[in-house]
Design a protein around this nucleic acid. Structure first.
Length: 575
RNA sequence: GACCCCGUAGCUCAGUGGAUUAGAGCGCUUCCCUGCGGAGGAAGAGGUCGUGCGUUCGAGUCGCACCGGGGUCGCCA
C-alpha cells in the first residue's frame, strides 16, 4: 500500500535526484516542526559540506533547478536559509487522502511491512488463584495494543498469556482449599475469598509446622502429577481464567494461547542440561546450577541446591518452546520494569546457549503504579486496586455523566456508552504516555472527560457521526462533490494529519509505543474540533462544498475509529 | 557498592541532532451559544528543559560526572 504521504515523500526524493545536483545518499528528508509552514524539509548542511558550498546557496540553487511533474502532490518548493522546504498541493492532497481513506475504510492504516514475519507477544500473565491487579492491568492493556499494532503492520502475531500457574505457593493454595473448602462466590469475588483463605493458611502454618508440612506435601503431590492434586489445581486455573475472561471481554482483549508456566515442567531438566553442556552454567559445591560472569551481569541460578527449578528455568524453556513452535522474528515481553534485570539475564543466557539465533528478544518495560500518597500499590499495604472493581467503579462514574449529559438516550444505550467511556478511561490511562514512566493513580485525571482523555476522543467521533446522521436525514441535495474545494486552512491541517495515520502506526510499532497512536488520535480530535468550529458542513456555502465536507467528516470518523480500535477503545455512534 | 528507569510550565505529559517564539492537557484569567453535539472552540499568564563540563557548524535531544526520585542485585515470581 502506497499512502499519499509516502507518495509525496517519494516524489520529493525523485525531483531532487532529477536535478542531478545532489546525490541520493545525501538526501535525508525530515518532518519540520509544526511552526514551519512546510510538510517535508531537506536540511542542506551535509550535502553542502560534501559539495563545498554554503548551505543557503545550495538550497536556493536546488529550489531553482527543481521541476515539478504535472499532477504532482508537491505544491511548493522554497529555500529558506539552509533548508529546502516542500509543501503539499492542497487540492490534490485533499483528493488523494479522502479517496484513499474511503477506499480502504476499516483497513486504513494497514501496512504489509510484517509480511512473512511472526511476533510473539507475552502479556497479561495473571497469577492463578489471585485477582488481577494494577500490574496485570498495565501488561494486559499495553500488550493488547501492541498486538493490534503489529497485526495492522502485517505481522503474524501470536499472543501468549504466560500464566503464573506453578510454583511452591500452590502447596498452600491446595492445602487451604482442602481445609476451608471452595469459595462459593463468582468472578473476582471468588478469587478474593481464595486469597483470604491462602493468607489465613499461610499465617497459621507459620505457627504450626504440621500445616506447613502438609502444604509442602500438596506441593509435592502436584509436581508428581497426583490426580487429586492435579484436579484441584485445574479447578483453581479454571476459576481464575473465567474471572479473567470477563475482564478481557470488557477490555477487548483476546490472547491466542495461555500455556502458562506449568506447561514447561517437562522441558526443565533438558534446558538445565543444555546450559551445563554448553558451559554457560556450572554446578557448584552445594549442587545448585549457577550462571556466572555472563556479560558482566550479576550471578544467578537456574536450579536450586535441592534440585528445584526457578522462574528463570521456566523462562528458558518458554523461549526454547516459542522459537521451535512459532519461529518468531521477535518475542516481545510486556513485563514490569522491576523485572528488567531478570530479563536481561534470561536474554543473555539463551543467546549464549544458541536458543535464539533468529529471534530478537524485547522487553517492553512499564513503570510502577503509585497511589495518591506516593506509595506503591501492594496487597500487603492494603491499597491494592483490582481490575474488576476498577472497571466497575469507572463505568458507574461514567454512567452518572451520561445521565447528566444525555438524559434522552434509551437506557440500554446509556449503559453501553457508560461501559465504553468508563472502560475507555481505564485503558487510556495506561496508553496515553510512555509506559516506562511510573504512574500515579489519579482518579480525577483518569476519568476526566476533557482534554487529552479517551472521552474527548470518543466524543469527537460521535460528533462526526452526528453530522453524518443529520445529513442523511436531510436527504441532502445530491450534488456532486469536489474534494478540491477542501482548501480552508483548518481543512488542510486536518487532511494532512489524517494522512499521517499509517506513519504513526509504523512508528508505534518500531518504538513499542502505543502512545504514538494515542497522540495521533488526540491531535486528530483537536484538528477536527477546529475544523468543526470554523467550517459549517450541513450549511456550507455551496452544495458541492457540503458534499466535500461531509466526505471529510466521514473519513475523519473512519480514521479516528481505526486509531481508537488500535488502542482497544470503542467508538460509540452517540454518547 | 554495582547496574537499570525517570527528571521539560504549579500538576500530568509530548518533543529519538537542526529553522526568530521548546509544544499540549489540567488548573488559573478572559472571551465565543440568531451555525451541524459546550463532554466544544479562541486568547492570555506561566519555562535557568535537574546541575556542570564536553562532542558538534548546530544539543531539551549525543557523551561523561554529579544531584534528586523510583527500582533491582545466586536458591520468590
Amino acid at each position: 500500500m502506497d499512502y499519499a504521504l509516502e507518495r509525496f515523500t517519494a516524489e520529493v526524493t525523485q525531483v531532487l535526484v532529477a536535478t542531478g545536483r545532489v546525490p541520493a545518499n545525501l538526501i535525508e528528508l525530515t518532518t519540520p516542526k509544526p511552526n514551519i509552514p512546510a510538510d517535508l524539509a531537506l536540511p542542506m548542511f551535509k550535502a553542502a559540506k560534501e559539495l563545498g558550498q554554503p548551505p543557503p546557496r545550495l538550497a536556493a540553487e536546488l529550489a531553482a533547478a527543481i521541476t515539478l511533474p504535472p499532477d504532482s502532490l508537491i505544491g511548493a518548493v522554497t529555500a529558506v536559509g539552509p533548508f529546502l522546504n516542500f509543501s503539499m498541493h492542497p487540492e490534490r492532497l485533499a483528493a488523494a487522502v479522502v479517496s484513499e481513506i474511503q477506499a480502504t475504510g476499516v483497513n486504513y492504516g494497514h501496512q504489509d511491512d510484517g509480511a512473512g514475519h511472526r511476533i510473539v507477544v507475552d502479556y497479561s500473565a495473571p497469577n492463578i488463584a489471585k485477582r488481577m491487579h494494577v500490574g496485570h492491568i498495565r501488561s494486559t492493556i499495553i500488550g493488547q495494543a501492541l498486538v493490534n499494532i503489529y497485526r495492522t503492520l502485517g505481522y503474524a502475531v501470536v499472543g501468549d498469556n504466560h500464566l503464573g500457574d506453578w510454583g511452591k505457593q500452590f502447596g498452600v493454595v491446595l492445602a487451604s482449599v482442602e481445609r476451608d473448602g471452595k469459595p462459593s462466590a463468582q468472578g473476582e469475588a471468588a478469587l478474593e475469598a481464595l486469597e483470604a483463605q491462602y493468607a489465613r493458611y499461610a499465617a497459621a502454618a507459620k505457627e504450626d509446622p504440621a500445616l506447613d508440612e502438609h502444604a509442602r506435601l500438596w506441593s509435592l503431590r502436584l509436581e508428581q502429577g497426583d490426580p487429586q492434586a492435579r484436579a484441584l489445581w485445574q479447578w483453581s486455573v479454571d476459576l481464575t481464567m473465567s474471572a479473567a475472561q470477563r475482564n478481557y471481554d470488557r477490555l477487548g482483549v483476546h490472547i491466542d494461547h495461555a500455556y502458562g508456566e506449568s506447561f514447561y515442567e517437562p522441558m526443565l531438566a533438558g534446558v538445565i542440561q543444555d546450559a551445563l553442556t554448553n558451559g554457560a552454567a556450572f554446578r557448584d559445591a552445594e549442587g545448585a546450577v549457577v550462571v556466572e560472569n555472563l556479560e558482566h551481569l550479576p550471578t544467578f541460578l537456574i536450579q536450586r541446591k535441592d534440585g528445584g527449578t526457578l522462574y528463570m528455568t521456566r523462562d528458558m524453556a518458554t523461549i526454547l518452546f516459542r522459537v521451535r513452535e512459532f519461529q518468531p522474528t521477535q518475542i516481545v515481553y510486556v513485563v514490569g520494569e522491576p523485572q528488567s534485570l531478570h530479563l536481561r539475564q534470561l536474554f543473555a543466557l539463551v543467546r549464549t546457549m544458541g536458543y535464539t539465533t533468529t529471534s530478537e528478544l524485547i522487553h517492553v518495560a512499564f513503570g510502577t503504579v503509585f497511589d495518591g500518597e506516593g506509595q506503591a500499590l501492594s496487597t500487603r499495604r492494603g491499597n491494592m486496586i483490582y481490575l474488576e472493581t476498577l472497571l466497575d467503579d469507572a463505568v458507574s462514574r461514567a454512567r452518572a455523566v451520561v445521565e447528566r449529559k444525555s438524559p434522552d438516550l434509551p437506557e440500554a444505550e446509556k449503559n453501553a456508552v457508560a461501559e465504553a467511556v468508563g472502560v475507555g478511561a481505564v485503558v487510556y490511562n495506561d496508553l496515553y504516555q510512555d509506559p516506562k514512566r511510573n504512574i500515579t493513580l489519579d482518579w480525577e485525571r483518569m476519568l476526566s472527560t476533557d482534554g487529552n482523555s479517551a472521552t474527548y476522543l470518543q466524543y469527537s467521533h460521535a460528533r462526526c457521526r452526528s453530522i453524518l446522521r443529520r445529513a442523511s436525514e436531510d436527504g441532502g441535495a445530491s450534488a456532486d462533490g469536489d474534494l478540491a474545494l477542501l482548501t480552508h486552512p483548518s481543512e488542510t491541517r486536518l487532511l494532512k494529519h489524517l494522512a499521517r495515520l499509517p506513519e504513526a502506526v509504523r512508528e508505534a510499532g518500531a518504538r513499542y509505543a502505543p502512545f504514538v497512536i494515542a497522540d495521533w488520535c488526540y491531535t486528530t480530535a483537536r484538528e477536527f474540533g477546529v475544523f468543526f468550529e470554523q467550517c459549517p458542513v450541513l450549511k456550507a456555502d455551496s452544495p458541492a462544498l457540503r458534499v466535500a465536507r461531509l466526505a471529510l467528516v466521514a473519513v475523519t470518523a473512519t480514521a479516528l475509529k481505526n486509531g481508537l480500535g488500535l488502542l482497544g477503545l470503542k467508538a460509540p455512534e452517540r454518547m
